[in-house]
Design a protein around this nucleic acid. Sequence first.
DNA 1: ACAAAAGTGTTCCAAGTACACCCATGT
DNA 2: ACATGGGTGTACTTGGAACACTTTTGT
Lengths: 288, 288
Amino acid sequence: MQTTEEKEFLSLYSDSKYEKPSVTVDGVIFRIFSKQSNNYRKLPQKKLQVFLTKRQYLPFKNKYSVVGTFIDLKHELNNTMKLCVKNKVGLNNYHLEQLFTFGEPARDPRTRVLSVGYMLLTNSEEKLDNGKWFDVDLIELNTKTTSNQNGYTILKRVAINLTCEDEKLENIIEINNTKNGLEETKSLEITKNELAFDHISIIYYALERLKNKLEYTDIIFNLLPKEFTLTELKQCYELILREHLLDANFRRKISKMVSPINKFDDAKGHRTSQLFIHNPNWLNVNLD
Amino acid sequence: MQTTEEKEFLSLYSDSKYEKPSVTVDGVIFRIFSKQSNNYRKLPQKKLQVFLTKRQYLPFKNKYSVVGTFIDLKHELNNTMKLCVKNKVGLNNYHLEQLFTFGEPARDPRTRVLSVGYMLLTNSEEKLDNGKWFDVDLIELNTKTTSNQNGYTILKRVAINLTCEDEKLENIIEINNTKNGLEETKSLEITKNELAFDHISIIYYALERLKNKLEYTDIIFNLLPKEFTLTELKQCYELILREHLLDANFRRKISKMVSPINKFDDAKGHRTSQLFIHNPNWLNVNLD
DNA sequence: ACAAAAGTGTTCCAAGTACACCCATGT
DNA sequence: ACATGGGTGTACTTGGAACACTTTTGT
């Protein structure tokens, strides 16, 4: 397909004249974890968790960060992310998707580093290496909306608290969403940061994406075991949407996405519940 | 905020040991253009157009590409994109958003080049430099769906024809969407390419994003003049969604997004129509 | 008169919302 | 018995889909 002119050009091509940025891939790994209750009647409480690793080197030595690596020149971006989580933390089964590319010049104190952000969802219970799972608690501190006839400004302050057995990391970000006529700008500022770099922003971005995708995809099943009860499924929705759902309505809404199996959990102190599996064809049920 | 240890580290830090990729920003610029009809009764026909520039140098010399540039180390990514369109083509008013980062190792024959893809929407009528507007015609050639109890495979072949007065560029891509249990893969292959690099993929990605965003944002008004008729607005929706809409339903649906003004167009051969403007506060009408 | 577009009204159906209510289980 | 969760039914509301119909304009 290449002309001789092109072949010649490429053989002589040198790209050393351009100053190049460094590029990392950074993956926000989520799971949903069940915490046993001490009340025999009550169901275990579920928590959304994120996997963080402690940095061993400068900069941000001893701070926690999401899992990432500098990219090499051989591998495709997705594959670099996959290799990274395999080698660094030993995770193998997950859903992967690219989120956004972060390019603030000052986001890394060393030099210009772009970060291609990823979100990973797993239901795996395997022990992972080189890091810890942190409970994710997102709290909307306050929201200020002002509007005129040209548009509006929404200023949100959000706390993202990350907690494990012995550590609690508190982060606060401010999201400024301004609309002036057609110009729409969304900016994000970190006002309290107990993570490395701007990783709390990447986590926030991942939380928003996850929440939005619940509505129109079946992405949530990546966070659940193969077999689950409808109450478990509902709890997962509630965790991510951060709102309470009504049982009857919820069952109707997700009924096409799941199929009952002939198994029941061994509940204690209350009626047993039927187990369900995800039906991957639900989007196609309308087609013939 | 930095410790002395960190300061020392940074002063000694050298990043030369890593092989770095090149990075470009590439912007798909869309507008909607009205083509006058020769029938005095008929409204002008609207076309979605994309702005392409002809490459002057190898590789892909004399091929058309979207507007882009290698990034420098100083500017934020969005700003690099903005500077690029300002300097290269002279465009100043538009909506900008990041789409996706393309990282196929073979996408550039010179060396490893990542591309951060952007979509730009404009309603500007100004003459732009160094390129031409091409009509965008996306035609779904065929779709093959196979499914089993584990999931499905959707194979779509899509032609994207780009046409201006004296040139017609035909491109064909194949989108393979496979779902196997929870694993979902979406891959895109170019089977006929009359553009530079993988830019037809970036354009396809932009078309999809634009279509999806119509549903839940007011992004479309970036493609329209300040004052417009509801029929014009409907035509723009139909162009991007590639489907016919019913008039009465459409008017009800978008009624909250627009406000009538006390002006009427000077229609010929048919009833005059009222002009409307975009109401940027429609998302907030529910709040108090 | 008539072709093209502007604009309104109505019926039907699907899906979301908010409740009320009954069932099953282990201590 | 009772607390906890599992599960169903129903009445109301909202919004989309399909269609019929009227109005206005320049030639």
